[in-house]
Design a protein around this nucleic acid. Structure first.
Lengths: 340, 340
DNA sequence: GTGAAAGCGCTAACAA
DNA sequence: TTGTTAGCGCTTTCAC
């Protein structure tokens, strides 16, 4: 039987008023000093009838949904999985639930998802910002729904609360590690994304080289689309035996992983001829045939901090919180691609 | 301003009745023969006031949420991403939205998520079944909420509608490919999961060997936990130079990927000494340093079919649909691990 | 074409 | 302690 059981029916069957039944069923029996006998009777009948509370009626009345929306660009790699765990844990403790959706970097799709979350009166929204999606974020702000950016900021929306990995510091660590290995000729393979935390990787690349008095070869700085292949560029970069890099800093592991394969196909040895370090410690980097050293991203912590920030926003009626939380996490996972 | 704008307010401001405003705002102006002038006035005021329809009120009244819930065990690998795309596409066409959550194989967590979805009166639920989660599925069934299993069945719940990849056929294809390479001594590395579609991999292993009059060495059949490492077993299996496998069938790519690395560390050549084929074409198998041949899983198609099945269930008031859809998809992605 | 009004299930203020 | 009642915002029937 489709659950059409309401508090009123239960109240009637139990021979009590709706409010009595309501209090019991929403766990406020104690607070309202309902007699244990009555409470038990109501609960028994509810169980017997297969009562399922109607969350929409509850939210409609209480003006809050108890749900935080989570908007990912995609669920690839393990990033979403890990950060979601952090988020759910932090929000669960406070009685909030999480619903998640993705938009595959499609601004229109994102707008649709946002509209849906707003219509369902989600109490807050956490999302991974991307430049083309700005309209949707502005839409959220207009409704005064608390918004938290996870993992990056947008230059165009500088006032939004954000929790992100301090990729700049991590990239510095990675670069200093490679420089410490005695490498002199550096190439950069990175994502062409222009968000601050991705630009930071290239900035670290440049500034660490300068600080170490090493040359920055602009022709060896290459960026790619997210799902792009680095094969062609790697082959080009290493075609001139007389003048080729001896180290690669990969802004995302995925580029480093592919590069290792291409280099070995070309007969170059890793790390003897070319040392590599990547960013993000993505699944794959640790496979025995790959062994790409990488800076680990603290996904779960990021998620949990973002959730906490969202909770702060929710607790603050004025929405006045303004936090830019950069998590410093500079753990280098050393693998064969950069052993001494 | 927090969106506290209701249809009633808009109606008042526009000088029309609530129902008129309601018809316009829910896109039924045409059907109700509202004059274009009135329609425009209402819409203008709605926009001006920043009206956001209240989905909970709507659902409460209309007794349907327009949401299909999706319950994954985790979001690792790219499986969730791809199947979600298929699901969203199929459901979007019919005006349904999707909300997703995960439970990390924790039955209690899954039960909580299910309870939440039921309370929110999700119109249907699609999930990846796991044995320990049975209680939750029974809970769903008791409320008469349409339920679709994606990617596998459960022996204990044979009547549930399901869409899954025909892993048996695919595994047959993989095994026949290895046998066609002339390999004689086969090892199996698989997930210890007991669901039918995972058992099918091992069944295919055995039956293909028997059909080809090749020996089945029970000691070379090894299963592992999902996140387990095959290193120890692979080292053991190949320690006896006089008697070791010349082919590995990996029930999941992840085991094959690690095995390739371990084998090469041990000085064995892939595929000359050992040929491998995996299942699922997970990200990583195609990395140049790995090159694991694999049977591709049609994730997006599976998602889309599961969504269609859910829609069928929704359309059928009696809930009488009973489909077990096994998608045959036997595409072998040939990589270096099994070239002739 | 448009307006009035009932009611979805739940909460909470108010009475008793 | 328990019962009564007024909405929350929306849909939809019925009357004008």
């Amino acid at each position: 039987m489709k659950s059409k059981i309401s508090t009123a029916m239960i109240a009637e069957k139990a021979g009590v008023g709706v409010s009595t039944a309501g209090f019991v069923l929403s766990g406020k029996a104690r607070k309202m000093k309902i007699s244990e006998k009555t409470e038990k009777r109501v609960l028994d009948i509810a169980r017997e009838l297969g009562y399922v509370p109607n969350a929409m009626a509850k939210s409609l009345r209480s003006e809050r949904s108890g749900i935080v929306g989570l908007l990912y660009n995609h669920l690839k790699h393990n990033w979403a999985d890990e950060s979601l765990n952090g988020i759910k844990q932090a929000l669960g403790k406070r009685g909030y639930s999480v619903f998640l959706s993705t938009h595959q970097f499609d601004p229109e799709l994102q707008m649709k998802e946002v509209e849906l979350m707003l219509q369902h009166r989600f109490d807050a929204i956490i999302c991974i910002p991307f430049k083309e999606g700005i309209e949707a974020y502005e839409r959220i702000l207009k409704t005064d729904t608390p918004l938290v950016f996870l993992n990056d900021t947008l230059d165009e929306l500088p006032d939004i609360n954000v929790v992100a990995w301090n990729a700049r510091e991590a990239a510095d660590t990675a670069m200093r590690h490679l420089i410490g290995l005695g490498r002199k000729r550096f190439a950069f393979l990175g994502w062409g994304d222009q968000r601050p935390m991705f630009r930071a990787r290239l900035e670290a690349f440049r500034s660490c080289l300068q600080a170490a008095d090493l040359p920055v070869n602009e022709d060896w700085i290459q960026t790619f689309p997210l799902a792009g292949s680095v094969r062609g560029e790697v082959e080009r970069l290493f075609s001139d035996e007389a003048n080729r890099p001896d180290a690669i800093f990969a802004g995302l592991d995925v580029y480093g992983i592919e590069a290792i394969g291409v280099l070995e196909e070309m007969g170059l040895r890793v790390p003897e001829d070319v040392a590599l370090v990547g960013m993000g410690d993505q699944p794959g980097s640790g496979f025995p045939s790959i062994g790409l050293s990488s800076m680990a991203i603290p996904s779960e912590v990021l998620g949990s901090k973002a959730a906490s920030l969202a909770l702060e926003l929710l607790d603050d009626p004025g929405n006045k919180v303004a936090s830019k939380i950069l998590i410093s996490f500079n753990e280098l996972i050393e693998r064969r691609s950069s052993v001494r």
